[in-house]
Amino acid sequence: MRLTPPEVDHIALLARLDLSPAERERAGAELSQILDHFEQLKELDTEGVEPTSHVLPVVNVLRHDEARPGLSREAALSNAPEQAGGMFQVPRVVEAE
């Protein structure tokens, strides 16, 4: 299965990866190759088979709704690439009117 350049562009956008034209070319070829390997699974009949998302029969692990100590603001911000006024700083997300 050969992915088209617009399909590769779409995947790269969803993944938030800014690929150069050469990288797009390579990604398209490599992805197409791995998708061919996935075709092998079609040989198996999985009609009526339950999916396994986790091997343990553990569901809905709850805890009491009690406050516990967490990271201080200073610690939480200590690795931030950009911060201002005790907050993480990001580019403008909402356009000004």
Binding site: F38, L41, L44, T46, V49, E50, P51, T52, S53, V55
Partner: peptide, 14 residues
Amino acid sequence: AYYSKAQKVRTLIR
């Protein structure tokens, strides 16, 4: 076609 199918095959492997 992919993720859901793979999780079912995972059951067969188990």
